[in-house]
Amino acid sequence: MKLLLIPDPWWLPAILAASLLVDAVLSIRPPKFIDDCLSGVGFPRDWWWTLILVKVLAAAGLLVGLHTEGVGLAAVVGVIAYFLAASYAHIRARFTGTEFWLNCLGMLAFSCATLLISYIG
């Protein structure tokens, strides 16, 4: 097993970055499903801006990592940690409806697939 410091294929981290950027932009004026999700896990509304910042920084790290060794790998590991924490928050709050299964676990699975396919050869 060889750890890759530049992703191959590159397009998986690029799609993950685009997904995170879209999520961050939507979170500026959250639609109902994002509002329901954050409220459902009891995340304080005064702190919602931090999630936007985290997603933008993660997307930037993934994009920079397309050409800078190790940056994308660190970013995808951070994204996985983010969605693991989000999954824990959903389970702890017993908020395990559609938002949990599709959004949270879906993004966790996509992030893990990106790590395995693009960075672990």
Rank of each mutant, 00 (worst) to 15 (best):
A81M: 07
A24F: 12
R45Q: 11
P7I: 04
A24S: 13
T68C: 13
Y119F: 14
D46H: 07
L21S: 13
T50Y: 12
C104W: 12
D35R: 10
P44T: 09
L115K: 03
P9F: 05
V56M: 03
L102R: 12
A86M: 08
L53N: 03
W48D: 03
T50R: 09
K2F: 07
P44R: 07
A18V: 14
L16D: 00
V79E: 00
Y88C: 02
F83N: 04
D46E: 14
L20T: 09
A86G: 06
L4M: 07
I120V: 08
P31A: 09
A18M: 11
G65Y: 02
K2D: 05
I120K: 06
W101F: 15
V64A: 14
K2L: 07
H90G: 11
F95C: 12
S19M: 10
A60D: 08
C112V: 13
V25S: 04
A18T: 10
I80K: 01
F100V: 13
T96L: 11
G40V: 10
W49G: 02
T98P: 11
V76Q: 02
R29G: 09
F95P: 07
D35E: 12
L63F: 03
A58Y: 03
V54C: 00
T114Q: 00
F43W: 15
M1K: 09
L20V: 04
F100G: 11
V54L: 01
R29Y: 14
L53Y: 07
L105T: 02
S111Y: 00
